[in-house]
């Protein structure tokens, strides 16, 4: 899958699910990749004000959450503003 795309729509989630409280406020977006496929992702490494519809973003590899009492870390992709 392409690693870059553009934000189609986004939100700043203030009331998160229990497992994601440490991430609040959490920016979530739907991104259209260069092959037209749409994906859902968290946007990281930027403030809310830096996001707008059409912003160009690139995939980054991050911790998504930790799980249960054992605190197993779950990893996945997120997206960050592509400054290039």
């Amino acid at each position: 899958m392409p690693k870059t795309g553009n934000i189609v729509t986004y939100t700043v989630l203030r009331e998160t699910m229990t497992r994601f409280e440490a991430h609040a406020p959490m920016i979530l977006a739907i991104i259209q990749l260069e092959n037209q496929v749409k994906v859902l992702s968290q946007i990281v490494d930027c403030s809310e004000d830096a996001i707008k519809i059409g912003s160009r973003v690139k995939a980054v590899f991050r911790k998504v959450a930790s799980n249960g009492d054992s605190d197993t870390i779950q990893y996945g992709y997120k997206f960050a503003i592509d400054t290039q």
């Binding site: 986004y10 939100t11 699910m17 979530l28 977006a29 859902l40 998504v64 779950q74």
Partner: peptide, 19 residues
Amino acid sequence: YTQFLGASFVSLNAMLTRL
């Protein structure tokens, strides 16, 4: 996918609202 990323139902409707 959606739950795994922490996208609550409200956040999805919020993105839909903006669209």
